[in-house]
Design a protein around this nucleic acid. Structure first.
Lengths: 110, 110
DNA sequence: TTGACATGTTATATTTTTATAACATTTTAT
DNA sequence: ATAAAATGTTATAAAAATATAACATGTCAA
């Protein structure tokens, strides 16, 4: 499983508004699947579970079963990895690129 | 246009492997549309342009026309915004949540 | 054990994305 | 002016993601 596959799963998982909302809900405290469904009444329970499976496959949530309940925990580490590997790079170059853009635009006869 | 719409467009734009690749290509230096198409021979020119439109709508690239050429510049600022607003939060809480998870798992009778 | 509860699975319909073809516009060079 | 180059648009086919229904499993409490 390549690094690129990992970040593909993570970005795809983060691409959906409802999944980001689920992560927000888990940010404060872990919750059971039932509690999450109750917090998102406009989505069918099955739909919520399908989203959870996507998040779990991306390793953005960690699942722990306790009796007949399923407790879902946010795992922020993959997001931090993306930041370190990806966004860090871009942010580092941002000023650079913007200033290059600016000077290019100011010399239109090149 | 809400803040959430903005980050939705940005995350959706970043969700595609090929669009991330385009951003990578633009990271080093701005390029014309033609140069980008040449760099991604496995994709049809129209497909590349469709991806560019998605990136442009998300404000991840800035477009400047020079004669009959179109120069595409990476704009890293939206990515940095996401980091500051979103990933920063998660990363901040990461140690917190992981340690809470750990202690929860070690006390399974709660 | 038995019924109710919480969760899980599989199949399928709906919607959204992605790829491409066909055609149009703008600019450069001759 | 005219042909070629570079880009742009619109329509549509193909593929993927999302929502939901129908059914299945495991666990608790009486």
């Amino acid at each position: 499983m390549s690094r690129e596959d990992d970040s593909d799963r993570i970005f795809k998982a983060l691409a959906d508004k409802r999944r980001r909302r689920i992560l927000d809900l888990l940010k404060d405290s872990p919750k059971t699947t039932g509690a999450l469904c109750a917090a998102i009444p406009e989505l069918d329970r099955c739909t919520v579970m399908q989203h959870m499976r996507v998040l779990e496959a991306a390793d953005l949530i960690i699942v722990q079963r306790k009796g007949r309940e399923r407790w879902n925990y946010l795992n922020a580490l993959p997001i931090k990895d993306i930041h370190d590997r990806w966004i860090g790079d871009y942010a580092e170059n941002a000023v650079n690129l913007l200033s290059r853009l600016k000077s290019d635009l100011e010399a239109p006869t090149n």
